[in-house]
């Protein structure tokens, strides 16, 4: 899905989280929002997902104004920074949650839900953990379950907030490739937040560098390394 962010601004009381920012995300792209802490990355992602409403500006999905759409209507697969898995449900029930929440007429049968959950478990390469609880998983496994749960609703786009933030370097590398593979298989427009410039450069088709609620530069990883638009970008990508 093609996403257009048109002069979106967001203030929380006296703090300005986002100055008006505009950004076009082509259908099927894998985009990184890169920036230091407090630069407004999470806020922008949550506005896309409908968890936060902008103070001004519009969001267009495939050309249609989606600014007023509720979270449920947006059908964005969202992976939270700390995964937010339902701790009292098994992995199976976590992944099935979005399918069971559908209105009766579009809800798949139990057999169909079972089939889809197992297919997703295959996709994240954890076929045997359906009966476990989140507390019984490693950080990397939780992250992948969160991804499967988001994919289960057949989302129109995938939004990930620091998906690898809490993991050690080796697992990060592995999961990075995993996300790339899943993106290429599903063709979903994907936006992920990171403050790790190496991660952004290696994984994304398009990198959006943010600082203090503003977009500093938008470009392909190679363009950004070769021609940083501002001093901030130059300093940020050289660390």
């Amino acid at each position: 899905m093609h996403i257009e962010i048109d002069d979106i601004a967001k203030t929380f009381g006296a703090t300005t989280a986002l100055h008006p920012v505009s950004l076009t995300i082509p259908s099927g792209a894998l985009v990184a929002l890169l920036g230091p802490s407090g630069s407004g990355k999470t806020t922008l992602l949550r506005i896309l997902g409908g968890l936060e409403f902008p103070t001004s500006g519009r969001v267009l999905f495939d050309g249609f104004d989606a600014t007023g759409l509720s979270v449920q209507e947006r059908r964005a697969g969202f992976v939270f920074q700390h995964y937010a898995l339902f701790r009292h449900m098994t992995v199976f029930e976590n992944i099935a949650y979005g399918l069971r929440a559908r209105a009766r007429k579009s809800r798949p049968t139990n057999a169909e839900i079972e089939r889809r959950v197992h297919k997703l478990l295959e996709l994240i390469q954890l076929p045997d953990i359906a009966k476990r609880y989140p507390a019984q998983l490693s950080g990397g496994q939780r992250q992948r379950v969160a991804l499967a749960r988001a994919l289960a609703i057949e989302p129109r786009m995938l939004l990930l907030d620091e998906p690898f933030g809490a993991l050690d370097a080796r697992v990060r590398k592995e999961l990075r490739q995993g996300l790339r593979d899943i993106h290429d298989q599903t063709g979903l427009t994907t936006v992920f937040v990171t403050h790790d410039q190496e991660e952004a450069m290696e994984l994304a088709d398009l990198v959006v560098v943010m600082s203090m609620g503003r977009i500093e530069q938008i470009g392909k990883p190679t363009d950004i390394s070769a021609r940083p638009a501002t001093d901030f970008v130059r300093a940020f990508i050289s660390v």
Partner: peptide, 16 residues
Amino acid sequence: RAEEEAALTLGASGWR
């Protein structure tokens, strides 16, 4: 509110 927000993004209604 993270788990409630996750449920929202998965399409669940308030009561659910």
